[in-house]
């Protein structure tokens, strides 16, 4: 039964699959970095005191949250090309994922920033920290902690959504799967293997991110600078008590 199911000469297709895997990872990294940056910018606009900044950012978020990703991909790749703005497959794929996920991430970031108690900003400013330092050292680290679970979910979701780029033949995993299927006519076998590869990518990723969340929640210092600082503090305290 198992032998019957697996008849594709997988070793022949391994290089193609590896290429697809690499593409998928590249799409994920580039799009997530872009979406996080745009999402943060949108979130900052949305917590601004000025309506003229808040409103366009809110409109953006609502528009892109309520359009299917596939429609965005088609508009970016086929639609724009039809009016002379021809994006490459990689650019079109990344742009689509970025504008779509930025909308969701901006919601997560906005509520995380708004959730930092107003007294925190006040205490920081009372200590002489300027607006930028206050954001960088007081508000952002706290917002990051509360944004982490939602952000991590979005990262895994984005990775899975790269499979939609099969529609523009983006040469990622799903596209490779389709090519192998058309060469072997073994749709069930091929797509089961492709699905398994996605699982093998996503499961450790989401578990790793959960682990990271727990570390941060427990107050484990993540940056080398902070680790050194706490080590020096511990050494000084022990030196004093000895």
């Amino acid at each position: 039964m198992i032998a019957e199911l697996f008849q594709v000469p997988w070793s022949d297709y391994a290089p193609a699959l590896l290429d697809g895997l690499e593409r998928t990872v590249l799409y994920t990294i580039a799009s997530f970095a872009g979406a996080a940056a745009l999402g943060l910018a949108l979130a900052l606009l949305r917590v601004s005191r000025h309506r003229a900044l808040r409103i366009p950012a809110a409109i953006y978020t609502e528009v892109f949250k309520n359009i299917p990703l596939l429609a965005i991909i088609f508009v970016t790749y086929f639609g724009l090309a039809s009016v002379g703005l021809k994006l490459g497959v990689f650019s079109a794929g990344c742009v689509s994922l970025i504008v779509f996920y930025a909308a969701y991430l901006s919601e997560i970031f906005r509520s995380a920033i708004a959730g930092v108690h107003a007294g925190q900003q006040e205490a920081s400013e009372a200590l002489g920290l300027g607006k930028v330092s206050t954001f960088a050292y007081v508000v952002f680290p706290q917002a990051l902690r509360s944004a982490l679970p939602g952000t991590n979910t979005m990262l895994v979701d984005l990775l899975k959504s790269t499979s939609l780029l099969v529609t523009i033949s983006a040469a990622e995993l799903m596209s490779e799967g389709r090519l192998i299927t058309s060469a072997t006519f073994r749709a069930l076998e091929v797509y089961l293997v492709i699905a398994a590869i996605y699982f093998v990518l996503c499961y450790p990723l989401s578990q790793g991110l959960l682990w990271l969340e727990r570390k941060i929640r427990a107050g484990v210092p993540l940056t080398p600078r902070r680790r050194r600082r706490l080590k020096a503090a511990r050494a000084m305290l022990e030196g004093a008590s000895a």
Partner: peptide, 29 residues
């Protein structure tokens, strides 16, 4: 910034930075 460095303030609700240890709270400024 200089004014606020010369005026220390203690709040009713403490407003310590929850993501930092006590010693880091005192070091940040």
């Amino acid at each position: 910034a200089k004014l606020r460095q010369s005026v220390g303030m203690v709040f009713q609700r403490f407003n310590l930075f929850p993501h930092l240890t006590a010693v880091e709270n005192v070091m940040l400024a």
